Amino acid sequence: MTLTAAAPYSKPHQTSIVKIPRIEVVDALRGFAIFAIMLLHNLEHFDFYYFPQHLPAWVKAIDKGIWDSIFFLFAGKAYAIFALLFGFTFFIQMENQAKKGVDFRLRFVWRLFLLMIFGCINALFYEGDILSFYALLGVILVPVGKWNNKALLITAIILLLQPVEWINVINILNTPGYVIPKNLSDQYFSQVGQFMAGSSFWKLIKGNFLVGRPAVFFWSWENGRFFQTPALFLLGMLLGRQRRFLASEQNAQFWKKILMIAAVSFIPLFYLKGSMHQFVATEALAKKLSMIITTWSNFAFMMVLVSSFVYLYTKNAAKRVLNTFAPLGRMSLTNYIVQSILGTLVYYGYGLGLYQYTGATYCLLIGILLFTLQLFFCRWWLSRHKQGPLENLWHRATWL
């Protein structure tokens, strides 16, 4: 991906300050990510992996097809789109405040602290919360906020390469008998069903924080999220600096080019991640290389989704369809937390307990229903307010 030098930050003007307007395609893309996350979480019963055995064989066959399709399309990609746009939003905030002669970075630290609070509230219901994860890793944006584009791009590439995992690979190759660290997340995930299936909401809260959060923390480390996520933050900043989400023929060609590069890259990576054991005899080495390549494969397909979305958005017919997601994107914080509350209420034992009865087919239908309800609510709310309820609260608290 080629990113040329960015225009310098605008200097404050004594007579007028022009704020960067909302960019519709970003709202729509963020809403699409929320929709994809909703479908994934429903199929997973919001991290409660339970597969009903009483379903007919033909239903199980459909379930497998739906499960494989949704995970192929969105697993590891939906969250990545969210992370990319998180970095883009940071750039917009920095740019708007720079025009007023204000350095936004310290205020952003406070904003991350507020996001951590939102994440902790979300984690009361759903152990897989990413808001607190973004709040933690988002701190990297503070020291690099005014780096030049070249430094940002090099740093992002290094992070995407998964440097810690390559250290493990080198140790495996050079140290006979080297044993890779065990996945600590496994011992925690083996316990989550105990409190998710139970009828006590208090035990769910306790279990989410004492078991669920450590499980997700270790899983994120073991699967490269601690490096890929900040890399996506930086790339989102770069795309913002380049005004790549603005409508122009030059940007349309840019996204068309990214689509071709990402698609061509994805095909061999996807093949390799599932075939590594055929090429590498050592189990530990195959496992580590497969994990690294999986992160690259997910990144490549995420860019296929983003570039396709943004390029299609330049076409009027497609734009009208894609704008369906925009209200969800404008209220992404509210929607993300509300879907955790609704989803766990539907599937967990403290609520309806539908995890016992729903395979992927039923979960997909429930996910579409919940998405539709959220969409109608967002349209209704935004017809009366400029921001979603939690977005407004976050904004007001940011500027206390």
Rank of each mutant, 00 (worst) to 15 (best):
I205G: 06
I205Q: 04
G207N: 04
G207P: 00
V211E: 14
R213I: 15
R213M: 15
P214M: 03
F217A: 07
E222W: 06
E222I: 11
N223W: 14
F227T: 15
Q228F: 07
L232W: 02
L235G: 01
L238R: 11
L239A: 12
L239W: 13
R241V: 00
Q242M: 12
Q242V: 06
R244N: 04
F245N: 10
F245S: 12
L246V: 06
L246K: 04
E249P: 00
Q250L: 10
Q250R: 13
N251H: 11
A252D: 09
A252Q: 12
Q253D: 15
W255K: 03
K257Q: 14
K257S: 14
I258Y: 05
M260Y: 14
M260L: 15
A262P: 04
A263E: 01
V264Y: 09
V264F: 11
S265Q: 09
S265K: 06
F266G: 08
P268R: 01
P268I: 07
Y271R: 05
L272D: 00
L272F: 14
L272V: 00
G274Q: 05
G274S: 12
S275P: 01
F279P: 02
F279D: 01
F279S: 11
F279W: 15
V280K: 03
A281D: 13
E283G: 01
A284L: 04
A284M: 02
A286P: 10
A286E: 07
A286L: 02
A286Q: 05
K288E: 15
K288D: 15
M291Q: 15
I292K: 09
I292M: 03
I292D: 00
I292V: 11
I293Y: 00
T294H: 05
F299W: 12
A300N: 02
F301P: 02
M302C: 14
M302Y: 00
V304K: 03
L305Q: 11
L305Y: 03
V306L: 10
V306E: 07
V306Y: 04
F309E: 09
F309P: 07
V310R: 00
Y311H: 13
L312K: 13
L312F: 12
L312Q: 07
L312V: 06
K315W: 08
K315S: 03
A317Y: 13
A318Y: 12
R320L: 06
R320C: 02
V321S: 06
V321C: 07
